[in-house]
Nucleic acid binder design. Sequence first.
RNA 1: GGGCGAAUAGCUCAGCUGGUUAGAGCACCUGUCUUACACACAGGGGGUCGGGGGUUCGAAUCCCUCUUCGCCCACCA
Length: 915
Amino acid sequence: MTAPDPNSLPTTYDAASTEAAWYPRWTEHGVFTADPARAATHEPFVIVIPPPNVTAVLHMGHGLNNTVQDVLIRWRRMAGDEALWVPGTDHAGIATQNVVEKQIAAEGHSRFDLGREAFVQRVAQFVDKTGGEILNQLKSIGASADWTRTAYTFSPELSRSVREAFVRLHEDGLVYKGHRVIHWCPRCGTSLSDEEAEFTDTTGKLYHLRYVLADDPSQSITVATTRPETMLGDVAVAVNPDDERYQAMIGKDVILPLNGVRIPIVGDTYTDPAFGSGAVKITPAHDANDFEVGKRHALATPVIIDAEGIVREVEGAAGRVPAELSGLDRFAARKAIVNLLEAAGALVKIENHQHSVRHCYRCDTVVEPRLSDQWFVRMQPLADKALAALRTGELRILPERWEAVYVNWLEGIRDWNISRQIWWGHRVPVWYCNASCGHAPIVSRTDVTSCPGCNGTVRQDEDVLDTWFSSWLWPFSTLGWPDKTPDLRAFYPGDVLVTAPEILFFWVARMVMSGCWFLDKAPFHTVYLHGTVRDMQHRKMSKSLGNGIDPLDVVRLYGADALRWTMVAGLGLGVDVMLDPTDLEKSFAPGRNFCTKLWNIGRFLLSRVGPEPVKPVASLDAASLTAADHWILERLDAAIADCDAALGPARPADLSRWTDAERYRGLRLSEYAEAARRFVWNELADWYLESVKPRLATEGDDREVARAVLAHAFDGALRLLQPVVPFITEELWQKLPQTPPNAFIAQAAWPVVRAQASGSAAVFEQAREAVQAIRQVRSENNVNPGAWVDAVVVGPAASREALTPVIETIGGLARARVTLAEQNPGGASAQVLLSGGIEVVVPLAGMIDLDKEKQRLQTELAQLEKQLGALEGRLANEGFVAKAPPAVVEAERAKAADWRTRAGQLRDKLQALGA
RNA sequence: GGGCGAAUAGCUCAGCUGGUUAGAGCACCUGUCUUACACACAGGGGGUCGGGGGUUCGAAUCCCUCUUCGCCCACCA
């Protein structure tokens, strides 16, 4: 009976209390706070968070995204970099405005009832009160962001950056106001960029409409359209000038049904003769392509659908909308018009038609093309720089295949509509003179109060800027740009951007463009695009499907480390993470189990090592180390090397561009986690810890060596694991005798390889083989697991000598009393061949099933002979011997010789068994 | 319509520039409550590398083709 050890750990790991204890201590001690002054002597490593919407609630996607960032930032922090992870939120213009508008609607009002100022105030209050909660939720999963630098895209500081960017682009001639057809969401009441108008594949209808010629009612032309309601705004019918069917009609007029408007037939190569009827109705105000055609033919632009999607005579459309149709919603109008057309005999046919329809990315409403004045950014010059950054190797994207997608998008870049007709956001910094004095619009960094021309009053542009116009500045606006702050100097450009591929265009490519344009450097050298969190049917987790998992539930049930482990262990490069929302146990047990195992390893190891000081491993005399000691230290070195190779390189070797050799390496998080897991579990716990037990029970120098090696190996394991499972590793690390006081593993040094190889580690490897061989024999012969057996290791004298101490130590692992011999004692025994000509003989008189043993050997021999046959065939092949590299041939010959020996030994054994 | 990617063990995936007896984790089967851990330990089964053709002494790996999935882009009236 042992007295309770005051240092002993609780028998089970309590994630909740550990997490609650360590996180505040880390922040209180500034563990996550970066110092620009220190960046002079330490390589900075910077990640900016993809800012979640300020009103967002943490979901698994955030969990995955932020775990990845945290693993990288914790890794680099330990590696000695001045690591900075900038956190913050996005004001999310349309999304946030929608939330508050819904609240107001519940009160029976619209934003227009409140007025602009009051509404904006109301949203600001809402954000103040409930916003940013997601950042606290990130803390509960262990995110080690520098909270002293928490940023917000709509803060006064970042708003200044936004104005600076707008004005500077205007000065550069890249911001302009354009009059054209843009994507319009009638529900949100704003224009959208191309990226915000998402395609959805739809089975729609293709309506064929007959327009009668004005001067010859016996003739007509049929147009095909998916949107018959727009016919009220038609100004022409376009046919391909080379289309013989219609050539003769070009220049003639047709009469629009329903409103009787007379419009021309024009020739334009835009029309594809093979599509539909080969004739296209042209509605310049309600279709971007038609707008271009209209411009070419100097056609009018009557607007017959208003901002709410209501059909009426909006502008330049007098006499075009019959009274019975005016005031109808666009979809109601479609039905009504189709009916009227049919009644008028103008409807030729309706076909099913597969096409993609654009929807608002915020509310899923079908987007309406709308002619309006908007602010645009001319993107070509920006895109050229972003393309150059990738081509020169200043920037890389992982997985590699996304680079092609990035290039493809940038090469076909279109101008960016940055104005939105909502109220929540950065107001366009442009002012107009109220007294039409003729002064040009004033684009200004500071508020303008009077007209520089006539000193009269001015009014600011009503529009606000696209949310992404502030987030594309995030990598430097968060560091104080346009001021040349110490932060900006020290931490720009950053290093890695971690996000999902969905926002590659929205955000990532645009950040590269803005960084290259305003600061002449890409904002990071690596874009890491991780997969998506999906359910077991491979469906994206979403609120509407109800297949989501709340990360906070997982933290509560399994702990933050278990959550993180599950994410990282399953995270191949660019691979989706599959989780079962209906069975959290199945999804997160591996993470929880790993933490429990780690806890038990620590609990046992710490109880045996005890609190007394241990010697540093470097101070130990190599000769005093056992083969097992050398082995585990080498395994630690290998694990360190594997982790480094999986995660790194952290940055290009020459700091400015990737070489081809290093370009696609690193960021293999699952490989890193597996390497660390294998070391602590399969090597340290399964073998070293087991083999070292007897030594720990002794007194004296050997025990001290074992304690030192054990403490050192576990220390290394904890350090390697800290980035993935920061809480449990911190808790355990604090208990190691060699841990300095007032230190945190979160800022301890990342382990480095000792580079002290010793041949004796190989001896331990052979001993492991022997143990496994004996265990296999026992298991296959159904030997009572508790029973001890005898085993004889047969081999050359030299090996036997080296093996002796090892076998004494690990005999217990196989429950075998091991002796060494030069000759195979023969007899009724199980016999296993090891590498190096060593045999293990288990003479289990009475315990062994001879038939079974014969069977096993025969199977092994048959397998070996089959492979040997193939190998010998290859060696007999003249082509192989003549053409294959000599080294390969040599290796194959050696292998054949080895196999022949082995086959011979197997035959001998079978003969000895009387087969 | 264009482009890209994937197809390897029941599941999720590694296998880099062609030369292994094709791997890992999980799942599965058998045994064990062995004094840290049954959330564990020990042992084990399982793949003609999507089909077909080609190049080569040699192909999971390179080429062609077919099939099936996925992603991105597009001026799909």
